[in-house]
Structures are given as C-alpha cells and as structure tokens.
Amino acid sequence: MPTSEHKPPQPSARITPPQKPRTLRDSLWTGLKWTITALFLVYLIASFQRTEFNFYTLISGGKDIKRVMYDLVHPDLSWVERDADGEVVLSRKTGEPKPGTVPVLLDQMNETVMMSLVGTLLSVLLSFPLSFLAARNLTKGSAAGQLAYNSVRFIFNVLRAFPPIILAIIFVFMVGPGPFPGVLALALHSIGMLGKLFSEAIESVDLAPVEAVRATGASNNLIVWFGILPQVLPQFVAFSLYRWDINIRMSIILGIVGAGGIGFLLDQYIRLFQYQKASTCFLIILVAVTILDWGSSWLRERMG
C-alpha cells in the first residue's frame, strides 16, 4: 500500500545527483585521451605541410592550364578515325574505316562493366558458402567449427587488407596485362568484403525459426537452408548489388595499372597529352556510371 508520507519532490527543489565515483583508472584514462588528442593535432598539421596543400597553386595551376581546360571541354567525339587532312583512315586489313575515339572507348567501357560483372559474380559465388563458415552462431560448439570460423575469418581479413589496385598490379605481373588480372583482383577483394557482410548478416538472424526447423529433425544443411537463408537472402542480394556498383568504379581505375578496360586508355591519353580524348573518356565514364547507378539503386529498392 502506498503510504501518505511519501511526497513527490517540490518543483522548486534543486536535485544534486550523488557524486560519480572517480578512480585512478578514470584519471589515467582522461590523461591518455588528452595526450592522444594533442598528438593527433600535431600529426594533422604535419599532414598539411607534407601534402603541400596550397590554395594559390590550386587556382593559378600549372602553365598548361589553358590548353588542358580547352581540351577538356572539347571532347573528341569522332566515330571514325581521320588523318591530319580530315580523310577517313581505312584499315589495312579489311579496308573498312577505322573506328574513332567514341566507338573505341564505348567498347572499352563495355569491357570495364563486363569485368566488374564477372568479378562480382565470382566473389558472390565464393563468399556465399564461405560466409556460413565465418558466422559465429553456426560454428561455435565444436572444435572443427572453431577451426573453420577462425581460418575463414582470417582469409576474409587478408583479402580485404589488399586494396584491389595492389592485387591488380600483382596479377598483371603474374598473368600479363588485360581484363583477366582485373577480374581476379576485383573478385578476391570482394570475397573479403562480401564474406564479412554476409557472415555478419547470418550472425544477426532470429534464432527462433532456426530452432523450430532443427526441431523437425532436419539435417544441418537443411536447417541453414530453411531456417537461415530466407532471413538473410534479401540482405545478400542488396550487398551483392552494392558491391557490383563499387566494382564498376573500381574496374575503371584498375585499367590504369594495365588490368583491362577503359582506364587503360585513359591513362595512355593523359600520358600522351591527348586531353580531348581523355575528355571523351571522362564523359563516357560519367554517363555509364550514372546510368548504372540509377539501375542498381532502382533494383535495390525493388528488392527491399
């Protein structure tokens, strides 16, 4: 029973909460926090000096700035190649006109997209089964499970640690330039990324349906298939589409180290000061990425 002596606090009464106990550890921790902040600030200032950050250089530019700017806004939109006199250049072999910058670049852009597609698909196919082994909730309890968990986790971490561009450089050395090393680089890096995301999705499933399926006497494989997969599939699809999105941009860059696609030509044009052609590259990349961006976000919305 509530007693009548119990009065609510007066609205005017100030409330002073009891002092929070402060231990030696708290003081040490505070000291450490300030030291780390100070060190970080020093490092930040050093970073601006080291990177020669300077607004004046940005505005005044190099000496070629006018020509570069002119070329960049005048992309080379030729469909056939012409010589200095404006004559159409014919192919020696076929006698047909040689393709100009636009068809050549469209073809390379297509190769870039295809690279990203193959690389993403391979990574999805490989990380899908592996991610179940890297999910804590499925592997705990047995020594074999622990081993699988730790080793697959380790593999994912290692694969993620290498940026795709580094992997691409290694693979270009190993198998020679072209789209194949690019695909390998994308696939390996994406396995690490997707594997981590997939296994985290598996770790956060609702266990009640899993328990219910186990209670029907299903084998472990079917418990995962019926109890877990329907819960994680939409996330898996969303992650894969998102990864493809990232891989398209990534495969453009991989071309620069010789791993196929439009990036390879972009790099060459810039090295040869062919800025009008480089400008065409930028234009095509911009249009392609925008279209694919729309496409993939439209798809992802429909999946959710």
Partner: peptide, 9 residues
C-alpha cells in the same frame, strides 16, 4: 514455441 518460430518471408 511461445514465439511461433515461423520462417519469415
């Protein structure tokens, strides 16, 4: 079970 345990989706 108390929480039904139906598989979502």
């Amino acid at each position: 079970f108390q929480s039904f345990g139906l598989v979502p989706r």
